[in-house]
Amino acid sequence: MQIGFFTSTLHDRPLSDVLDFAAEVGFDAVELDAGRHVREPERVADAVAAAKKLGLAVSSIAVVGNQLDPDRTKREAFRATTAAYCEASAAAGVPIVILFPGYDPSMSEDDNYADFAAHAQTLLADTQDSGLQLALENWPGPDNRFIGTTPAGLKKLFAAIPDTRFGIEFDPSHFVRLGIDHMRAYDEVADRVKMLHAKDTSIDKEVLQQVGYHGENWWRYRLPGRGLIDWPAFIAKVRQHGFDGTIAIEHEDADYGWPRGDWYARIKGETEALNFLRELMTP
């Protein structure tokens, strides 16, 4: 299993700095943030080449945004950009492009699923010869309404997109804050898992008692090992299912400088998370 990290946490530094850091501390791979570190589809090949020169694999490119943007003009423009990233990634040998399905409140839930499924199938058809895989991250979105972020929603989406080149970048932290057993969820979607995100979640039960699930500040994302997830058990679970791909750290832990704090605090967080995972995975 390779260990990488999602470069979004180091969004304010040029890609060269990010790659130098990754190689220096011993990461195997990077998950590139398309908007912040690739910038445009035409630069995918150069970004991949720069990573490879330092001995790093590019596990994936994440195209962050709402694929179901309610503004139809913005939706079509973003989907065209997404398609260009898919084409460029396939040409550069990047195995996975990460998408966020999003949500359009002007449409019914069924129509949201059908619309995104049709879009994803077009992307798959256009890259069929390359073997490029697509994966959604199960982030519920800024208002907790994104589709395909629960076991039921994922099953619905996978039924609508039978091509097994489409799957999930499984992030257990999101399930934890939604009150969903991430271990059971993994069992239910294991055959569609393309990548893992290493991120944890902590819950302040006293705050939760006062404000309830619809309140604020009762949960927060943490680096792996600093929240509620039993990482040895989770790693054992994914191995049991035969997963041997990339696990990418997604650093969103405010104790280590996220989102715009000190550079050294942020890379300390990335490094400590890398060491934590390495120790878990060492026989």
Rank of each mutant, 00 (worst) to 15 (best):
L228H: 02
P95H: 09
Q210H: 13
E188M: 15
N217V: 00
D253P: 02
L123W: 08
S59I: 08
A50I: 00
A34K: 02
E216N: 12
G141D: 07
L10T: 09
A49R: 14
Y221E: 00
K156H: 08
V94K: 12
S106W: 03
M1C: 03
R266Q: 15
T73V: 13
I98T: 12
E252V: 03
F78P: 01
P142F: 12
G179P: 00
M195V: 11
E250Q: 15
P224T: 12
K74M: 11
P142A: 14
P224H: 09
K237C: 08
W258A: 09
E270D: 12
P172V: 13
D110H: 07
T149M: 11
L32E: 00
A47V: 09
K74H: 12
Q67G: 05
G55S: 11
M1G: 04
L178K: 04
T201S: 10
F27Q: 04
K199S: 03
N144V: 02
R184C: 01
G227C: 08
G167R: 08
E31S: 11
Q209G: 12
S59M: 02
D200M: 07
E252D: 05
L223C: 08
L274Y: 13
Q240H: 15
P162F: 11
E279W: 05
P162R: 14
A236D: 13
V211C: 05
V64L: 15
F170K: 09
D255Q: 10
V94E: 01
V211H: 04
A51M: 02
R260W: 13
G141V: 13
A92I: 00
H182A: 10
G4M: 05
G212I: 03
D171T: 02
A49T: 10
A22G: 02
A47D: 01
D129V: 09
H119S: 05
R165I: 10
T271I: 07
P283I: 09
D191N: 15
V64F: 15
W219T: 09
D46A: 15
Q133G: 04
T81S: 10
A29N: 07
T81E: 14
F243P: 05
Q133T: 08
A114W: 01
L223E: 11
D111Y: 07
H197K: 05
F166C: 07
A265R: 14
T201Y: 04
Y186W: 09
E169T: 14
D71W: 06
H214S: 12
R220K: 12
G245C: 11
A198T: 03
A114I: 08
I61Q: 11
A160F: 07
T271K: 14
L280W: 07
D115Q: 15
L277E: 05
A159G: 06
Y85K: 09
R222S: 04
N112V: 10
K199Q: 03
V48K: 01
Q121R: 15
A49D: 08
A22E: 05
I203V: 15
A273V: 11
Y186D: 00
A23F: 09
D115H: 13
A77C: 00
L228C: 03
G269Y: 08
E216L: 11
L277M: 13
Q210I: 01
A160N: 02
P41K: 08
W219M: 13
D171G: 00
V193K: 12
D104S: 05
E31L: 10
K156R: 15
D262H: 14
E87N: 01
A84V: 06
A233R: 14
K53Q: 12
S106I: 01
P151M: 12
L99A: 03
A114H: 06
D187F: 13
I229P: 00
M195G: 08
V97E: 00
D143V: 14
